[in-house]
Structure formats: structure tokens, C-alpha cells
Nucleic acid binder design. Sequence first.
DNA 1: ACTACCGTTGTACAC
DNA 2: CGTGTACAACGGTAG
Length: 543
Amino acid sequence: MSKPKINVYWFRKALRLHDNAPLLEASKSKHPLLPIFILDPLFLPDTRADYDDELASGALAGENQFQFLMECLQDLNENLKSMNSQLCVFLAQNPEEVFEQILKEFDVDSLYYEKDSEPYANERDAKIENLFKENSTKTVSAWGQTLTDLDEIKSHFKKTPKVYRSFMKVMGNHGDEIIVKPCEAVKSVPCLPKNLGNLQIFDGIPTMKEIGFPKKHEHTPFFGGETAALERMEKKLADKKWIAKFEKPKTSPATLEASTTVLSPYFALGCLSVRLFHFKVQKVYESQKSHAKPPMSLHGQLYFREWFYYLSYTIPNFHQMKGNPLCLQVDWDHNKEFIEKWHHGQTGFPWIDAIMRKLRQEGWIHHLARHSAACFLTRGQLWQNWEEGKKIFAMYLLDGDYALNSANWMWLSASAFFNSYYRVYGTESFPKKYDKSAKMVRKYCPELAKFPDKYIYCPWEAPKSVQKMAGCVIGEDYPDRIVDEKTAKQENMAKMKAAYKRKIRGNPNSVELKKRGEKRKEAPKVERKTKKKRFGKKKSKAD
DNA sequence: ACTACCGTTGTACAC
DNA sequence: CGTGTACAACGGTAG
């Protein structure tokens, strides 16, 4: 009996039907199409502690992003259903297992997927490519998470573009050729294979509970999915003047309603195409008399993203200080108490605490709020390694993204790209520029809500009588400051100066590159337990 | 080798 | 209120 011939589209990111070139190609084939998504345990919450390296390399989503991801899958499934297909979700120990199942059941003509630049993905995909090669099966993949083809643009750079400007030079000179035009949306797909045989497909899209998130998760203000993404994009694009005028530094980090587009969560998981947005913004620009220019404009933001993706794809150890040739080597402290207080919004600095609490609740904070919090944790006040902050951000951000999170933390800690380390964000002066009455502090640090404007960003300076009147005594109802801002700033600046004098950047050759999976072998117990708990329920094969 | 210039998004204070 | 300047001063790039 010969095996049925099919194609497989593998969704990982690119959780969309629009501007998805490999999916479009698959949709034009005459063979049945199996659209799959594989949830491997590296995505799951309770493996996080054991997989620190994988978290660093981008495999894991935090709870907020995970919920968002599930909504993307639901939306995708709905859209596929309306085309008489469906998304087939696999809960499996690793993707190889799934493809072995598929190859056993079917004669796969081609495997289609969008390329992914993260180290975790590179390794995963290399294994799968290998498996298909051994099986003499064709694979079709393309870049789509970025504006350009990251392999192709390599040839345009003689050396690493270490400043935005040199990256932009290439974009400026070759933009028309290297920025890929969006392709048409998929409107129909071939039917599913008639018989799914013994494939161990999860029934529908797993809920947070089914996957093992312990308690009910408070939803962020943002809902995942391609449908929501396109809606949001169109809504923003409708205000043409706003689009044309947009300059990032002129937007406020202190408003309750987001002052920017908040499309980043959709870009991060690929339920919105950056190419489509770039193209649509271009159309708006053309319709207006004048428009903002990079680096501040919306296009400028996309080019920053592109630059960081390119760097993260080509620079070794991009996610850490050690062995990262771009990253200044700094003798950061490791003070667990500081890190935890920063993490939980308990530093005693209302502006910082409000930012961190908002981040945890809502999964999105303004770019400059991220700057403020990141500067505070690293070179500004607490002198902690940026990697710690990056990991904590990754746990809560809806737009958590390997390339962008790493790059921005290096930027803010003045470890790379940016070196004016003497420019330190104040916890009072900075937010005051945007909002003297501190709406954000009053909302996210409600214990401080009754303080008068004069003391809202510096409640410790309020006389006891004022504190009592506000119903909030500092040190009792709200924490006292964990450092003295001025002293810490001065000390840290001096340390930063010394680090710059040493001029040491990471040496990739001096770092023993940990092989992925090593840790897994060291801790097989945890993994097996996880597998049973999670996956034993619906499936029978393992048991 | 040297110099001049530039860099998306700071603060504090003088006027 | 805005505008200008000192603060203390970096690395990358182009010439």
C-alpha cells in the first residue's frame, strides 16, 4: 500500500495567511496540505527554570506572550477552518518526533516554512532539514519575519554595521531591491489529507489550563491573532497625518493609553507582516505633503528592527555579555535582592515601580519606559547585568523577541551601540517632562495615589504629615528607596568610565559555547516528569 | 595616523 | 514658560 502524497506547512512564527510566501506556494500545489504547529516543552512555563539557556536563545515565551500565542493559533485555526482546513497542533517532546510520525504515515512531497533567525530555531531547523534530506524530501523556506532576506543582505556589508547609519546606508542604496514586497494573501488552501492515520494531533487548540499554567491568568489589554493584528494596523493607518508625522522620541512613555502603534506583539509572532506594514506606511507617506524620516519615523523603527535582527543573526553570543564581540565587558554586580525588587516594582521609586508593574500586568510598556527601567537596573542605579533585566522582560513582554530584547538592553546599558553613559534617566526629572501629575504612578502604584503632585515621584521627600494625609507612610505602606539615586549614579558613572577605559569587548573564541541540549541530558528527570504531566493526558503512545 | 563630525529619545541650571 | 549651555566626553566612520 503506497502512502498518500501530501505537503506540510509548518507554522512556528508567521502565524498568518497574508504575505506568507511559502504558504502561498503550498496553497497552489495540487497535493493535500497538512498545516501544523508543534508545541514543544521548551515553550512551557515550568521548564523555564531548567532551561535558562533556551530562554536566553529565544525558545520560551512568558505567560503573557503564551496566552497571546494561543490566541494567534485559535485565530489561524478559525481562518483555516473557513477554508475547509484546520491547524493541526502537536504536543511533542521535540519537532523531530512529529516529523518522523508524519514521514511514516505520508509520502511528503514538500515541507514549507518561514525561516527564523534565532539560535534555538537555527538548531531546530537544521535537524529537521537533515531529517528531510535523509528522506529525500524537498523543503521550501523563505525569510518573512524581516523586511529583507537576512542571508542575501550579508553580501552588502563588508563589515558589521555597528551604527544605525551604516546599516541605513545599505538600506538607502539598495532598499528597493532588498526590501521584499508583500505577496498576496492566501485565500484558499488544499484540503487536509483524507485520513490522518495515527498522527497524534491535539484536539483543537490547547487552552492555558490544558497546557499547565497553574492559575487563571489575568488577560492583558491586547488580543493575539492575525485578525486582531490587521484590524489594529488599519485603525492606525487610517490616521494618515499621525502616521506621516510619527517620530518616536516625541511620543510619551507616561500615558495610560499607548502613544505608539503597539503592533510589536503582532510582529514578534509574525501574525502581522512587517513588509505589509512597511508598504502600507509607504502608501500613506506618498499621500501626504511631507512625512517624518528615519531614524525617528515609523519606517525608521522598522529599520532599527531590521538592523537588530541582522546583528543577532550574524553576531555570536548576541544574547549575553560573555563572548559577544559587540558587547562591552562590565563588572556588573549580582545582587538578587535588587533584581527581585526591580522585577516586582518594589524599588521605592514610583516611576520605576509603576513601569514594572504595568509591564507585568499588561505585557506592553512604551519604549522610553523600557529605557527608564533598563537604565535604572544597569548603569544608572542598581549596577546589575543587563542579561538579568532582559530575561525578566522576556517573561512578561507580549512582544518579547530574541533580537530586539537583547539589542535594546545592550543599548540602554551602554554596552553596545550607545556610549553616552553619562546620560542617565532620572526617576523624577524624566517622567515629569511628560506628566507632572503622574497618572501612571497613581494607577499602577495605587498606594501612592493620594500624594500631591509635588511628591508623587519622590514620596520619601514628603513630610510625615503629608505621608499620613496621603494614607501612605514610606517604609511601611510603600517601600523606601533601595539606593540613593544621586550617589549610586555617581558611583556607577565612575565604574562605567573605567569599563570604557578598559575597552574590552567579548571574545567569542574565549567562550566555551554550550551545546544546546546539554542541559537537557543533565536533567532528564525534570523533562520526563514534565512530559508525563503535560502530554500523557491526551496521548497514549508514550504510556 | 590623524582629525572632525556625528549620534532617535539626559539633567540641571542660567537666563 | 522656552532656549541655551555645561556636564564630562565615548566609539564609529569618513576623509
